[in-house]
Simulated assay, not measured.
Amino acid sequence: MQNAHYRIDYLIHGSYKTFYVHSSTMNKDEALHWATVDAGIAQIPKYRSDKVPRLTQKQAEQLGLTDVAWKSA
């Protein structure tokens, strides 16, 4: 499968943010994960092969991240 560019929009503490990511797949869970990473509330793996815990939507909302949306760029 080929990689594609995606635009991800979200709100963090009421402030609108947007960024682009290059990924082979995108869905609601992936968009939430990348939004938490971009917002600085999720852990970034030291190496690509490292597994890091992902935040749930409820956890992200408790930390102020809401309204995650994505589309192909």
Rank of each mutant, 00 (worst) to 15 (best):
N3M: 12
N3R: 11
A4K: 14
R7D: 00
I8K: 01
I8D: 01
I8Q: 00
D9N: 13
Y10L: 10
L11H: 07
I12Y: 09
I12D: 01
H13M: 04
G14E: 02
G14H: 02
G14S: 07
G14V: 06
F19I: 11
Y20D: 11
V21P: 00
H22M: 07
S23N: 13
S23I: 10
T25A: 07
T25K: 08
M26E: 03
M26Q: 02
K28T: 14
K28I: 09
K28A: 11
D29Q: 11
E30S: 07
A31Q: 04
H33K: 08
W34C: 01
V37N: 01
D38P: 00
D38N: 05
A39Q: 02
I41L: 03
I44L: 12
I44P: 00
K46Q: 13
R48K: 11
R48N: 09
S49G: 04
S49H: 14
K51N: 14
K51A: 14
V52L: 06
P53T: 15
R54T: 13
R54V: 09
L55P: 00
T56N: 02
Q57C: 05
Q57V: 08
A60Q: 09
E61H: 13
E61C: 07
L63I: 11
G64W: 06
G64I: 15
L65N: 04
L65I: 08
D67H: 15
A73E: 14
